[in-house]
Design a binder for these strands. Structure first.
Lengths: 196, 196
DNA sequence: GGTTACATGTAACTAGTTACATGATTAG
DNA sequence: CTAATCATGTAACTAGTTACATGTAACC
């Protein structure tokens, strides 16, 4: 799952590990990351050929900075290090971009993964994005069906309250998803409005 | 976390692993369990002295069944096995009951754990239960404060939509928790109404 | 001159999951 | 007789976390 987050962020521009960690934290409601997970993940992604890395020595003023710094203010050592040791700047490869597209479409039965998929679904074509939303919707509907089939059978007030909150949350989530889907269909009429 | 679920269920009555697994699934919105997690957990709990086990041979009609079967319909081999091999029936120990009380009060910054704590919080004295709710509340409030301090800074419509849903969900959860807390205070006036 | 921020990494732990191995009993 | 259900368990994997080790450089 971290792979999805890392590839998504790198698709926007090259970054080194420390910076990636900061972005991840502010990404979606504090997607929990830690260096202990991130650095091994980056090593794994590099071994798999999804990303490539370049060691960047702080003082060298060569072309290391990439899309992450759009304004190149005259290169007057504006990239002044601020760093204590060499950084490893990662860049997504072509294979990595393909992998990202796959990760963006799989499953959707996992809340945390779906958050990440939503955070980067702008990289998907509209029809694939709609398919993702519908997949998530189907999952929520099946959860709802399960809850209705098995209506609590506990008399404990705390358990009952929890179940009820769950149902309200499910309804709220479905309404929200339906709004997302409707918006998507508005911006992209699809095959139906045409006489085909 | 499984420890909490297992001890909570065993506090209600003795059970063997397979039955525990079934109860866990129907417990709180499908608390995900699997034998691969449950059996090692039971072994660990037994090593720690929190539970004890008795091997039960299906055909023996001795006193194996406990609180889980309240109606003892004349013992006319009503406990007819239905089982293929010997079961290991677990019972919570005194130490285990103490441990359960601890587990019911720790943290509350973990959504999944809090669900379990709520499912078994009836075993806590009212003041400890209130403290648990307040702890959870404080956690949600701090999440809300973080979200407000850092207001999105993304222009992507999907990310913005997700953030907004998160905030609505937080508000809904807080309102729900406040209701729980208010109910608790109504049933247990506490030290304030008295002149102390 | 001490704290904070930058930067990369490893080790041990937490909390699970899926798939497999094994076998008895019961219902169709 | 065969499929489903009951019953216990292991192995390998997923996806993280916390704590530690190491070091530079900027801020006050």
């Amino acid at each position: 799952m971290l792979d999805l987050a890392v590839l998504g962020l790198l698709k926007e521009g090259d970054l080194h590990g420390y910076e990636l960690n900061k972005r991840l934290k502010s990404l979606v409601g504090g997607y929990a990351t830690s260096f202990g997970a991130l650095y091994p993940a980056l090593a794994r992604l590099e071994r798999g050929g999804w990303v490539s890395s370049t060691a960047v020595v702080p003082h060298s003023d060569t072309d290391e900075q990439a899309a992450s710094e759009p304004a190149r203010r005259n290169r007057r050592r504006s990239t002044r290090p601020k760093s204590g040791r060499t950084r490893k700047v990662y860049r997504i490869t072509e294979a990595g971009e393909g992998h990202l597209l796959e990760l963006l479409q799989e499953d959707a039965n996992n809340e945390r993964r779906f958050r990440l998929q939503l955070a980067f679904c702008r990289f998907l074509p509209t029809d694939r994005r709609l398919a993702l939303f519908e997949l998530r919707r189907a999952h929520l509907v099946s959860l709802q069906a399960m809850a209705r089939r098995d209506p609590v059978h506990s008399t404990d007030p705390y358990v009952r309250s929890l179940f009820q909150r769950d149902q309200e949350r499910l309804e709220h989530d479905l309404a929200w998803l339906d709004r997302l889907i409707a918006d998507e269909r508005t911006n992209w009429p699809g095959p139906e409005p045409n006489d085909r």
